[in-house]
Structure formats: structure tokens, C-alpha cells
């Protein structure tokens, strides 16, 4: 439970808020209210991505994208894959290893892992196992999904310490976290 009071902290309320937050913090977690202290107007931190967000399950192939994070690698036949952690999978043709050719980007929100068997790619869409037909990497098809099977992503706390946007329980379960610019965030881990 965290204080959601968005008004400035008046001296009379400040103490109550502090006690309330201390109890919440020791009771359950390391995450703490910002206790009415000065929170930064703008700071980079994590914000929750809700399972109910329509973008969360949007799986499709788009044109080649620039590599950003250089994530986990996988190879099969003449196809080389590199995960763009949290976003999807880059696909390369390495028939000529001295000149790899980037073929496509498979947008899979929350992706961290993959395996391939034949023309089927297995990955995670946050905590769901998804099976994708990659016979044509420019036109992939989602074949099946096992929802919520993993605990790889989401949860009650962001991946790193720092300020974060508080979870709104009314928005349902958290699928994952994204790093972005936060404005006067009320929570801290």
C-alpha cells in the first residue's frame, strides 16, 4: 500500500504519511513512498506495462530495425537471431558469414528468450509462451500461446532500484516494466 496523495505535504500530514509509509515498507517490501519529500519533476525510471494494454500482445514482423541492446543470440540453419531485449528479435541471413544480411524484425513485446525447431520459433511475450511460424520471416503468424506460464517479467517491483511510477491496481496485472521519463514519480525502490 502506498500513499497516493498527490497534494503537497502539509506539516500535519507529513508525519502520518511517514509512519504509514514506514509500516508499508517494513511490512512487505523495500519499495517506499517518497514520503512527501521533494520528488524530482523529471527523472528516468521504470513505469509498469499493464497486461490489459492492447500493444502488449501485438506480435508481427516489421522491416529491419537498428540494433540497440545486443541481446541473446541463437542460430539455426542459415538464420541468426539476436534478441532486442523487451522488444523482439532481429533476424539475419548468414549464408555468407562475411556479409550478414538483416532480413526482418519480429516485434514480440517483452521478448527475452527464443528457441527454434523447424519453422517454429518459441519465445516469451512477457510471461506468455508464444509459438510463431517463421516460414516467411516477413509475414510471421502467431500459432499458439500459453498465457502466464512464466515468472520472467512484471511483478510488483521494477528491475532496478530508483524512482518508479506506482502500480495502479485498477489497471490489472503488470506484464513488464519499461524505462522512460517519469514526471514526479511517487514511488521508489
Amino acid at each position: 500500500m502506498r500513499s497516493r496523495n498527490k497534494t503537497a505535504a502539509y506539516p500535519a500530514n507529513k508525519k502520518m504519511k511517514a509512519i504509514y509509509c514506514l509500516v508499508a515498507a517494513t511490512g512487505l517490501s523495500l519499495a517506499a513512498c517518497t514520503r512527501g519529500e521533494e520528488t524530482p519533476e523529471k527523472v528516468i525510471g521504470y513505469a509498469p506495462i499493464y497486461q490489459s494494454d492492447p500493444q502488449v500482445q501485438s506480435i508481427k514482423s516489421i522491416g529491419p530495425q537498428p540494433l540497440a541492446s545486443g541481446g541473446k543470440i541463437y542460430v539455426t540453419g542459415q538464420d541468426l537471431f539476436q534478441v532486442e531485449t523487451g522488444k523482439g528479435i532481429h533476424v539475419f541471413d548468414i549464408q555468407h558469414p562475411e556479409q550478414p544480411v538483416k532480413k526482418a524484425f519480429l516485434q514480440i513485446p517483452g521478448a527475452q528468450e527464443l528457441s527454434v525447431k523447424g519453422n517454429l520459433l518459441y519465445s516469451n511475450n512477457y510471461n506468455d509462451l508464444v509459438v510463431i511460424d517463421i516460414t516467411d520471416v516477413q509475414h510471421i503468424r502467431l500459432i499458439s500461446r500459453i498465457a502466464g506460464v512464466f515468472h520472467l517479467s512484471g511483478g510488483s517491483y521494477p528491475p532496478d532500484q530508483g524512482y518508479f511510477e506506482c502500480i495502479d491496481p485498477e489497471k490489472g496485472p503488470v506484464a513488464g516494466w519499461e524505462k522512460k521519463m517519469l514526471y514526479s514519480p511517487k514511488c521508489r525502490y
Binding site: K72, I73, Y74, V75, T76, G77, D79, Q112, E113, L114, S115, V116, K117, G118, N119, Y122, S123, N124, L129, F150, H151, L152
Partner: peptide, 27 residues
């Protein structure tokens, strides 16, 4: 065509013996 590919040693997923094995932080 139906064989599995090869991942790196940092992987949490792997395919062997016609099964997919996956680990999260505990299971």
C-alpha cells in the same frame, strides 16, 4: 528441417529430446 537450433550459454530456453525446457528465476 525439424531439428532445433542452438542458443548461447546465457539462454533460459532450450530444446532437446522433442521438449522445450525453460527456466525463470526459480522453476
Amino acid at each position: 528441417e525439424d531439428t532445433a537450433g542452438t542458443g548461447g550459454s546465457l539462454a533460459r530456453f532450450t530444446i532437446a529430446l522433442n521438449h522445450l525446457y525453460a527456466v525463470d528465476h526459480q522453476l
